[in-house]
Nucleic acid binder design. Structure first.
Length: 878
RNA sequence: GGGCGCGUAGCUCAGUGGGAGAGCGCUCGCUUCACACGCGAGAGGUCGCAGGUUCGAAACCCGCCGCGCCCACCA
């Protein structure tokens, strides 16, 4: 029950600047915080006092935009709240620099190309004049070094912005997803999955981007609307009598056709089902089968199955045990195929070769145009093509539709764990709760295990080698895993145990796995990376730290990456630790442009934050961000930043007023009792605001907390401060109000500190020791206790007194405003009509009201309806 | 096609059973001793539409319309 020191202890000295200003506060205080280690994680804290945050590592590719500022501010407000609650806040940050965007930039910037077969050159320097046309081939480690060099610059700029925004992260714990530490943890987790059979290698149809020439995962796909042409194509039976019509938007895949399908109940196709037909032009014999997934309402009711046109083809191919007849090369061009040989039989091999020669080597679009001409000439197109718009699947970073090709890839099992993952989703506390639906949709919609291998370079390599047999063929089924002590390894330069580097690529020797992992395969381990998950002695990992921070308290992130980052992190934690990686998921929305469109570089509507920070100040930008409710998208509106700036300025001035050194105040050290009813009522109301803000923050609803605090603070400035000014300047009456003012000011400064850290630190420093950000969060109960120092029985009456006094003051102001008189214009008489209870309460605040309104006499009359008559003094007496 | 969210003043948004609100913008007024980066006042809304529950609905239920997002085996 000891009242907070900050509220009761008279500080040795109060120093209020003559003209308080927001200018320069960002630099002043961020430097001070850094010097004092204000946000350093306290490792000595016991687990129950730790609050750990699995901060999103932003992708380092160019610049941050307001969306980042938005969601990171939400997290920071919560972090600051928890810190003030006495928690040791574990709040690291990382940079996600591993991945394709960086790779592309490095290639162009330095004029290099990664060739994993090239040996590492420790003395390599990039060409002085980069040539995009003739890039220099360099080893993967050299390439990674250049990537690191380029991202380092960006990361410094990011850090500067974050510091300017006032994020209270512990900068001593920064990590990167391509750094040795992250690689080691990522590789070790993978090896564990491999050992337990949760990771496996398979040659199978996989989603493929033909430009990047890499496998991609289901989670990285997006739909884009594209125009296309629907063509009706004729297949005939071997006698040329019966015919089968199909509709397709992808005629170039006809040479890859392996079957036609109808719905089992489709009477129209009854004759054809069970027979065989020939593909047009190529004369390949394909069966007509049935499958329940065929929609008889679509097209002709018959559908062509190709290996592979889309994901449905894969389903049909697998379930009906159809052969593979693949025409598409990894480069997105039609490959050479051996017409006439096994699997490529034809009724007319010469014709098949001749027609296919027209397609071979062409891109998909070129081949499509050409085959339509050939089909037209052959008379196998029926009717006119119809123009359609349909959704086509793209790799989210890609420029051409994804294709499905057969290749050898690594997978992590997801399908076998679906029920467990759904249960994890229900175990997690979602803020807001409805966001869980997105997760469940995603898990329920999974169609296959997670393909984690990428045929790229700037990523974490698979820590594996393979033996080569006497003929130099790779023995994929006998991978040689790295030992844990070796990690991280780069199998393109490191050598497995029992081999020498001369044996690389030689018959009887070894070969490194050439691929890198999906960026999410490493990002999904951020709790382990940031928390330095337990590992082998001497590995730099840290059992004690990890046990203190994991599982983490909260994962903050935006809703668009629930299916990727959130999902994969739950998966990995489930597989490796059999727990949720965090207790709470705090999902933030997006910043949309003023037309409510998603910001994107291609639309050119991206707002960058630097100039906003300069123009409005960090606190104002943070204010705008903190107004975005959890999970809710917000249209960008610079007006809101003005509002935040106004709030910050108001706090400066209100603090100056409260702390003003008035000669009439008497001995400052004398701590007065709250003897005045209005003072007590205000403190009681403030207690309710504290309770509200606290419970909102406990639910991660920073926006609600801000709203409550802010609106009460404005009421406090507009009404309470004005009402009590008279007593404030009156030596005999000042004790109670002075105490109420100091007490409330201390609380406001702390309540606003999570949102406006700079201005709050500034005004705190005028009269308190230490940082406001390490001060204790106000306790509602404590304020109620303060009320208890006086009589509590009249609490309700006193609250009414505050209400009615403020209501009358408003009416007096209105009268003056309508009379176009200044607010200090004298009033000879005010007659208040109100209920008996309110009239009685008014008595308690009448003196303050008289002072605040320059009123000579206040008369109260009991009445049914509230009304106020204001008699202004004659202007001449002014 | 399925799911989720949203629809309240010109704009951005609070408000989940009992007075329709805030800020910005707009209009008018005020050099008031914390603050002109200010203060005070005002105008402005059939709370998407239509039913239902209830003494009472912006809120709860049903349907519809519109917008956004997510998901889907879009031939």
């Amino acid at each position: 029950m000891t009242p907070d020191r900050a509220e009761t202890q008279p500080p040795a000295a109060v120093e209020v600047p003559e003209r308080p200003t927001l200018d320069g506060l960002e630099q002043k205080w961020s430097e001070q915080w850094e010097r004092d280690g204000c946000y350093r994680f306290d490792r000595s804290a016991p687990r129950e006092r730790v609050f750990s945050i699995d901060t999103p590592p932003p992708t380092v590719s160019g610049s941050l935009h307001v969306g980042h500022v938005f969601s990171y501010t939400h997290t920071d407000a919560v972090a600051r709240y928890q810190r003030m609650r006495g928690k040791a806040v574990f709040y690291p940050i990382g940079w996600d620099d591993n991945g394709l965007p960086t790779e592309r930039r490095v290639q162009n910037h330095f004029g290099v190309r990664c060739d994993p077969s090239v040996a590492y050159d420790p003395d390599f320097t990039p060409p002085a004049e980069p040539s995009e046309k003739e890039p220099v081939s360099i080893s993967r480690p050299n390439f990674v070094e250049l990537c690191l060099r380029l991202t380092e610059t960006d990361e410094r700029a990011f850090e500067e912005l974050w510091r300017g925004l006032g994020l209270s992260v512990d900068w001593s714990m920064t990590y990167t997803t391509i750094g040795a530490h992250a690689q080691r943890i990522s590789q070790r987790s993978f090896l564990g999955l491999l050992e337990r059979g949760e990771a496996y290698q398979l040659e199978a149809p996989t989603l493929w981007d033909v430009d990047f020439q890499t496998a991609v995962a289901q989670a990285e796909l997006e739909d884009r609307e594209r125009p296309g042409a629907m063509n009706r194509v004729r297949f005939r039976d071997a006698d040329g009598e019966a015919e089968a019509l199909i509709e397709t938007t992808r005629p170039e895949l006809i040479p890859a056709c392996v079957a036609l399908l109808a719905h089992p109940d489709d009477e129209r196709q009854r004759e054809l089902v069970g027979s065989e037909v020939l593909t047009p032009l190529f004369g390949t014999r394909v069966p007509v089968l049935t499958h329940p997934l065929v929609d008889p309402e679509k097209g002709t009711g018959l559908v062509m199955v190709c290996t592979f046109g889309d994901l449905t083809d894969v389903v049909w191919w697998r379930e009906l045990a159809l052969p593979v007849r693949s025409v598409l090369g990894l480069d997105g061009r039609l490959a050479d195929v051996p017409w006439g040989s096994a699997g490529w039989e034809s009724q007319d091999v010469e014709r098949a070769r001749r027609d296919y020669a027209e397609l071979r080597g062409r891109t998909i679009n070129q081949a499509r145009r050409r085959i339509l001409e050939l089909l037209q000439q052959a008379g196998e197109i029926v009717g006119e093509p119809t123009q359609v718009t349909r959704a086509v699947k793209f790799f989210e970073k890609g420029e051409r539709p994804v294709e499905i090709v057969t290749s050898r890839q690594w997978f992590i099992r997801t399908m076998a764990h679906r029920d467990a993952l759904l249960a994890r989703g229900r175990e997690l506390e979602w803020h807001p709760p409805y966001m869980r639906a997105r997760y469940e949709d995603w898990v329920n919609g999974l169609t296959g295990d997670w393909c984690v291998s990428r045929q790229r370079f700037f990523g974490v390599p698979f820590p594996l080698w393979y033996p080569l047999d006497a003929n130099g063929a790779v023995l994929y089924d006998e991978p040689i895993p790295a030992r844990e002590e070796q990690l991280p390894v780069d199998p393109s330069t490191d050598v497995p145990d029992g081999y020498t580097s001369e044996q690389r690529g030689q018959p009887g020797g070894f070969a490194g796995d050439p691929d890198v992992m999906d960026t999410w395969a490493t990002s999904s381990l951020t709790p382990q990376i940031a928390g330095h998950t337990a590992g082998a002695a001497g590995s730099g990992e840290d059992d004690e730290l990890f046990a203190k921070v994991f599982p983490m308290d909260v994962r903050p992130q935006a809703h668009d990456i629930i299916r990727t980052w959130l999902f994969s992190t739950i998966l990995r934690s489930h597989l490796d630790y059999d727990v949720l990686p965090w207790r709470n998921a705090a999902i933030s929305g997006w910043v949309l442009d003023p037309d409510r469109k998603k910001m994107s570089k291609s639309k050119g509507n991206v707002v960058t934050p630097m100039h906003l920070l300069e123009e409005y100040g960090a606190d104002a930008v943070r204010y705008w961000a903190a107004n975005g409710r959890p999970g809710t998208d917000t249209a960008f509106d610079a007006q809101q930043m003005k509002v935040g700036r106004r709030l910050a300025v108001k706090l400066l001035n209100a603090s100056k007023f409260v702390l003003a050194d008035l000669p009439c105040e008497g001995e400052r050290s004398e701590v007065g009792q709250l003897s005045n009813p209005l003072d007590r009522a205000m403190i009681a109301r403030l207690g309710a605001v504290v309770a509200d803000a606290t419970s909102s923050f406990e639910q991660f609803d920073y926006a609600r907390a801000l709203e409550r605090v802010e609106s009460f603070f404005w009421w406090y400035c507009d009404y309470y401060l004005e009402l009590v000014k008279g007593r404030r300047y009156d030596t005999d009456a000042t004790a109670s109000v002075s105490r109420a003012l100091r007490r409330s000011l201390s609380i406001f400064q702390r309540l606003l500190a999570p949102f406006l850290p700079f201005v709050c630190e500034e005004v705190w420093s005028w009269w308190q020791e230490g940082s406001v950000h390490r001060a204790s969060w106000p306790e509602a109960a404590e304020l109620q206790a303060a009320y208890g120092e006086a009589k509590t029985a009249d609490a309700e009456l006193e609250d009414t007194a505050l209400a009615v006094t403020a209501d009358v003051l408003k009416e007096v102001r209105k009268a003056k405003s309508q009379a176009r008189r200044p607010m200090r214009a004298p009033v000879t008489r005010v007659v208040v009509h109100d209920s008996a209870q309110r009239v009685g309460a008014l008595e308690l605040g009448a003196e303050d009201l008289r002072q605040a309104g320059s009123i000579e006499t206040v008369v109260a009359v009991v009445a049914d309806e509230f009304a106020v008559e204001v008699e202004l003094a004659l202007q001449s007496t002014d």
